[in-house]
């Protein structure tokens, strides 16, 4: 918004601007908390039946499995953690299937340090998951409304034509760790945020609802668009992996671009910009 009149000097000749509005900051941190618990309780729920399938149902007398994580006793009597993805078997002992110290092995898909609660407890996993699912969905809705009103969506998230045509350059600069610190996000940032906020988040909510037998009666089109309840469960899992991947890159980028300045811009809203960015007049 009115960045030009809002500039302040912090230190010798460094200027800060108001970068993130209050709605952007509150929703950001609410999502951070909600997604943390959704991930750990989601892995708890997954552990109750650690297999993923394609279609409406789970194949017990036929094979439509795309992923399974099991503890299997080998010929030598030793129990191994075996992860099977698209028919390929991998030994994942120590992390998936079988985990924990040698003398007190836990035979579960995801290890205790990745689940809430740490022990096997589907009921509690569901209580935690659905509580934070409501919080998450309410935050997505609030963010959407606020971002339409305060212009965050149009100004910062939706990529413009020049953002897209400038992608190769933006990508190359990221690879060389060259970051512009201006008011606006760069093209790669805009596209990442647009994909996460406008595709992954709604997809997570919709595939979650598709697993609900109540919604199955109320909105039968849900299982139709996702190709069945079990496919929806698989998509829910895959988007979870993509969000974890986004999180890893997001944190790496915050560290690489200057963690103090980046975190401050998401806490107080103030962001220190490069001098060059201020010299050519207002950013927009």
């Amino acid at each position: 918004m009115a960045t030009a009149i809002d500039k302040q000097h912090d230190g010798a000749d460094r200027q800060t601007i108001r970068r993130h509005g209050i709605a952007t900051r509150i929703t950001h941190w609410t999502w951070a908390i909600a997604l943390f618990f959704l991930l750990l309780s989601g892995l708890q729920i997954f552990n109750a039946h650690p297999s993923l399938y394609i279609g409406e149902q789970s194949g017990f007398a036929f094979d439509n499995s795309v992923l399974s994580i099991r503890a299997v006793r080998g010929a030598d009597g030793e129990v191994q953690g075996v992860t099977t993805a698209f028919g390929r078997r991998m030994d994942t002992t120590g992390f998936l299937g079988v985990s924990g110290p040698e003398d007190s092995r836990a035979y579960r898909a995801f290890p205790g340090w990745l689940t809430v609660p740490s022990y096997q407890d589907l009921a509690t996993g569901r209580v935690v998951h659905f509580f934070f699912a409501w919080l998450f969905a309410a935050t997505v809705l609030s963010w959407l409304v606020a971002s339409l009103i305060n212009g965050h969506l149009r100004r910062d998230i939706l990529p413009t034509f020049s953002d897209i045509s400038g992608l190769p350059r933006s990508f190359a600069e990221h690879l060389r760790f060259r970051f512009h610190h201006g008011r606006s996000y760069n093209g790669l940032q805009k596209i990442s945020y647009a994909v996460v906020l406008l595709i992954f988040f709604p997809l997570m909510i919709l595939t979650g609802l598709t697993m609900s037998p109540g919604m199955n009666a109320g909105a039968p089109w849900l299982t139709e668009i996702f190709g069945g309840r079990q496919t929806a469960r698989t998509i829910h899992f895959v988007v979870m992996l993509l969000l974890v991947g986004f999180f890893a890159i997001h944190i790496f980028m915050v560290l690489a671009a200057g963690p103090i300045n980046e975190i401050r811009s998401m806490v107080t809203g103030r962001y220190r910009i490069d001098q060059e960015a201020t010299e050519g007049g207002p950013e927009r």
Binding site: W113, P117, R178
Partner: peptide
Amino acid sequence: SRIIIDRRRFLTGAGIVASTIPLVGCDALD
């Protein structure tokens, strides 16, 4: 543009993040 990243600051930040990871494994929530 300048190359903003400097190694010391990066490592400090990485250390802060890494130090929070054991919290995930903490059973305090149970």
